[in-house]
Structures are given as structure tokens and as C-alpha cells.
Nucleic acid binder design. Structure first.
Length: 395
RNA sequence: GCUGGAGUCGUCUAGUGGCAAUGACAAGAGACUGUAAAUCUCUCGCGCUUCGCGCUUCGUAGGUUCGAGUCCUACCUCCAGCA
């Protein structure tokens, strides 16, 4: 069982520590989206420097390239990517559901690679197997999403997700027992790195040969479905929960209240894909989510949309051409400490790679630090004040 | 000086009788939430009451034509070849 200690809680919000085989995650925490085993435009070293505790990679992308077998041969995601710290993988459900030619049936999903048209089938079992090969600390159950906002469609996707969850749990347990005897997938005990601070190669040693499974709660914006899904997931032998299918912050607070009041307190909860808007992070943490991941901060960084305490700015705008002040004076990331807006503007206008690198450093630092600040404010009881002042200034 | 070719939005470019006129770049702005995203969208002659209307445009000045960036004449500029 994944160890999760709660240091303090207030209402649904809590401050805790997730103990993974690759180290601890102090929660609430923002997890960097490293879809293809890299956070776009950033090195793992830069991710460490800007305070990232964990990354989340994607099973769909990794089975297309370089392949789960190759990552297994490399010693797992952490070794392969040189991220010697906690890792998550998403199941691939989200990507597959968004492909144009996907056939979903009870058994799984058939789809073609968007890269070369190769045909694939992903099932709950194959997703579990691939995730074990990739070897992240925390795996997501293979779930089905729907873009529809119709109740019946949502219920159907939820029911299928639940049916798949049973198969994910069974396959996960089978793989776990094989791994514990040393003849299965995943890292054998002796080569499984332990603990270790981020940035240093972890000392080898006997550790629990374990990878952990999170169930994914579905149900869209229908509170009764969310409640049903939360109850179903809570009843399963899983180590934590992903909360999926959230596309806007609107109504998220009510949904999270419903879901997180039902989910067991002693297991971590990951809010899948949310965190582009600072509001998401405050609401998520306030209503009981422990970890977040989102592609928004780095994607927007690459497109020139940068966070400041006064809201997002588009650094490509002409008004920054002669602006020699730092992007965000209060920020202590490398981008803000060493460079000014006119320079960033110039790098973007001339399409230099460094533009995307510096912008990604800043945006990723901004969300990671915001969540870290939320953690601090929860610990010292100033969360509501912090939330109020932050949001008033930002929006 | 002669002969041939060329002058179109900031730049390059399409256009050979019905065009405010193609495409690219540049410029201006917007979007982005479990990443097919180093992406995508919009504006880009001027002015309005902007699903439309008016005005002014394709080196300059004339001409032919219902209608000219497109045809004709002259001139200006540039390029190539010949003197």
C-alpha cells in the first residue's frame, strides 16, 4: 500500500506527504507534465532547480515511441529519463479518446498511431502491463472519457470505466505479485532505487518492489454520477485516486466536494489535467486534491503566454518591446532573476529556442511555487487570506 | 545610344480584359487545462452605420474599352546584352 501521511487538514483540504519508492512528494503538489518522458523545453535538471517534486508521463505516447519494452530495458522511466524522483503515468485513456479514429468496445480501444498509422489495441490489461514496464511509481487506471455532456453518455462512459477498473485492479495485482517474486514486469527489488533526493542518483537498496495504482473517478458535471463513481472507486483495492474528465473550473468546487467527501481520507487524490488557471489550483487544494498535473503552463509558455501575479501576459505584444523590467519581480526563477521583458520579447519575436526554454522555466516555476505556497498557507492557517489576495490581484 | 526584360500591400510574390487584387514572410491581436500543440485562429489600402457600403490603389501621364494591374502611346527608374 502506498504510504500517505497527512500532516494537517482543514475541511476537505489537507497537507501531506506521499512516500513513493523514488522519494517523497509534499502535498499539495504540482506534478510536471512530461508526456513523452520529458517536460517540453526543459531538462530534468532544470525541473529540479525550479522545485518540481514529480513528473507525469503518458502511456499512450510512450508505447508509440520509444515503446514500453525499451523503457523497461532502460531500467524504467526514472532511470531512462534521469528523473530520479517520483513519477506518475497516465493510462492513455485520455489520448485515445481524443483520437479521430478510435473504436471503443467493452474489451478496450482500437486505434491507429497518429505518427505512422500502425494499429494498436489498448485494453485495461495492456495498459497495466505497459505501465508496469514503464515503471512509474503511480499508475492511472485505464478509463473512458466522453466529450458529450449528455447524462446517458456520461453514465455509459462511467460504467465502462468502472468495469475496466475491476480488470485494471486484477491485472495490477497479478503484475504486482509477479514482480514481488522477481520474475514479472517492473523493477526487481534489488535494482529498485530508493528514496533519494531529487537530482541525485538514488542509492540502491532493498525496497518494496511496488508500483501503485490509482482508480479514476468519472461522471462529468453530474453530481449523482460523481458520487456513484467515487463510491465505486473507493470500494476498490487501489492506492489512490485520479479525478478525471474535468474540462473547466466551472462547477469544479461542488464536484470536488461531492467526490472528495466520499473518497477515503487516507489515500491521495490527483486532479487530472487541471492547473492552467491558478484558480484551479486553489479550488483543487481547498476541496481535497493532493496533486495536480497540467500541460497548460508549459504549452502557454511556448506560445508566449506568461504568468505574472497580475494575470497572464502575452510577451509577444508590442508594448513589451522596450520594457526592461523583469517579467515578475517577485519571482525567483532564473528567467525573472536574470532577464527582462524586452529580452524575452525579442527572443520570441525572433523565434529563438531560448524563448521557449526561459518561458517554460518561469511558467512551470510559477505553478509549482503557487501550489507550494498553498501548502504553506494551509500549514500556517492563512490559506483563505492567501487565496483571496492572490485571486483578487491575478484576475 | 540601340535591343530585350522588369516596375503590384513593409518585403518577396500571383495575376494577360470584370479584383481591393494570390501566396509567403513581416506586423498587430487572440486562443490554449490527464500535449497529434515549436501549435491554431483572426486582422492586415483608407473610412464608415463593418454578414454591408463608400473612396483611393498595381512606376508616372495620357489613350482604347461598358470595364484596364492586365491592351496601346510617351516618359521615368532598374536589370541584361550589344554599341
Amino acid at each position: 500500500m502506498l504510504k500517505f501521511d497527512i500532516e494537517k487538514s482543514a475541511g476537505l483540504a489537507r497537507v501531506g506527504v506521499i512516500h513513493t519508492p523514488h522519494g517523497d512528494i509534499k502535498t499539495p503538489a504540482f506534478v510536471g507534465a512530461a508526456t513523452r518522458a520529458t517536460v517540453k523545453a526543459l531538462t530534468m535538471e532544470q525541473m529540479r532547480e525550479l522545485g518540481s517534486q514529480a513528473i507525469l508521463a503518458n502511456t499512450y505516447h510512450l508505447i508509440l515511441a520509444p515503446g514500453a519494452d525499451l523503457i523497461e530495458a532502460a531500467g524504467g522511466l526514472a532511470e531512462f529519463s534521469s528523473w530520479h524522483a517520483p513519477t506518475f503515468t497516465d493510462s492513455g485513456g485520455f489520448q485515445i479518446f481524443s483520437l479521430p479514429d478510435v473504436k471503443i468496445s467493452e474489451s478496450g480501444a482500437k486505434f491507429k498511431s497518429h505518427i505512422d498509422g500502425r494499429k494498436f489495441e489498448m485494453t485495461p490489461e495492456s495498459s497495466m502491463q505497459d505501465q508496469w514496464k514503464i515503471g512509474a511509481d503511480i499508475h492511472m487506471a485505464f478509463d473512458q472519457l466522453t466529450k458529450s455532456d449528455q447524462y446517458e453518455d456520461m453514465k455509459q462512459a462511467m460504467d465502462r470505466t468502472h468495469a475496466w477498473l475491476d480488470r485494471c485492479v486484477a491485472e495490477h495485482q497479478r503484475l504486482a505479485s509477479m514482480a514481488s517474486t522477481g520474475d514479472g514486469l517492473g523493477r526487481a527489488p534489488a535494482e529498485h532505487p530508493k528514496g533519494g533526493a531529487a537530482g541525485e542518483k538514488s542509492p540502491a537498496g532493498p525496497v518494496e518492489p511496488m508500483q501503485y495504482l490509482f482508480a479514476v473517478v468519472q461522471g462529468g458535471n453530474f453530481l449523482d454520477l460523481r458520487a456513484e463513481s467515487a463510491k465505486y472507486c473507493a470500494s476498490k483495492a487501489v492506492d489512490g485516486f485520479g479525478i478525471g474528465g474535468v474540462f473547466t473550473a466551472e462547477g469544479m468546487d461542488e464536484m470536488l466536494k461531492t467526490v472528495n467527501s466520499i473518497l477515503p481520507e487516507n489515500k491521495p487524490r490527483h486532479l487530472l489535467g487541471m492547473g492552467q488557471e491558478p484558480l484551479d489550483l486553489f479550488v483543487g487544494a481547498e476541496f481535497g486534491c493532493d496533486t495536480f498535473d497540467c500541460v497548460g503552463p508549459t504549452r502557454m509558455a511556448r506560445n508566449g503566454s506568461l504568468y505574472t501575479l497580475d494575470g497572464r501576459i502575452n510577451i509577444k505584444n508590442a508594448k513589451f518591446k522596450h520594457d526592461f523590467t523583469p517579467l515578475m519581480p517577485e519571482c525567483d526563477c532564473d528567467c525573472c532573476k536574470k532577464y527582462n521583458k524586452a529580452y524575452l520579447h525579442h527572443l520570441f519575436k525572433t523565434d529563438e529556442i531560448t524563448a521557449k526554454i526561459l518561458a517554460s522555466i518561469h511558467n512551470e516555476h510559477f505553478v509549482i511555487q503557487t501550489v507550494a505556497n498553498i501548502r504553506e498557507s494551509l500549514l500556517n492557517g492563512t490559506f483563505q487570506d492567501y487565496k483571496r489576495s492572490f485571486l483578487a490581484r491575478y484576475y
